[in-house]
Amino acid sequence: MNRKITPAKVIMAFILSFLALTMLVPLLNILAKSLSHPDLVHGLKGYHIVPRGFSLINYQVILAQPIVIRSVLNSLFITVTGVILNIGLTASAAYVLTRPKLAGKKAFMYFLIIMMIFDPGIIQEYFLMKNIGLLDNLWAMVMYKAVNVYYLIILMRFMENIPASIVEAATIDGAGHMNILFKVMIPLCKVPLLTVGMFYGVYRWNEFFHSSIFLTAKSNTVLQVLLRQFVVQSDTQVIVGAANILANNNIAQLDNGSLKAATIVVAIIPILLLYPIILKYYTSDVLSGGVKG
């Protein structure tokens, strides 16, 4: 906007840089900590972003723990299967609810909005999972939040804007609704579907509260729950293993903070992989400096 360099602008540049650093430095610090050599890591302070020495031992140790691998696989299963279910249900519901002459459309919308604003709460959800036998079954977390009404409405806004003539042309060609959804609508809504899918995916990967309640067996632990036990509640045993602690062997002598840092990095990596796609599709207009009409 303003090309002149004024004192106010210098102060603003300073504030913005400071803000960005408060977000960047802690993340880089954790990465540095996880990669530092165990003998040198004690000198690493919170503002250091370069590893002290270099070692992959922390990653080797955590990735050698069956529970870590198990929890990563569980999280991946819930996220991938869950997002497929999310997209399938959300896209077909959005398609149906944007058909102009559908009888009962208004009633369906009221029903869905009530579903959006009234949350039954954890106790009844727990009872439900127990009663239908999904407690301690990964499918409980796949089924949980299978449709987010807010995302459904976002998708409906896009589908409403697709000219009716396109759908009519396909109908005249003899295509049924399923065909129109898969061959016409979904290709036309690629960007909003990808965006919504991304949000579903981030939600599912990051979810920990319901997972910790629905999935209690050790073999069903998801990564965020394991991370919470280890990092937030400082339960070293869940990762290092009681036997290793008792024997006080090499693993138990590693720096706990570095092991925690490595586990955090493992939990962030999928988010960082998705992040460029989120930026590309969701925030591209505010990043490039123009608003799409």
Partner: peptide, 23 residues
């Protein structure tokens, strides 16, 4: 600044707590 400042929104509270405990 924008790219960095949007990122924490996508981190789980478990991860954020882990970062802030260090912080």
């Amino acid at each position: 600044v924008q790219i960095v400042s949007y990122l924490p929104h996508f981190l789980s509270w478990v991860v954020i707590a882990g970062i802030w405990i260090e912080f």
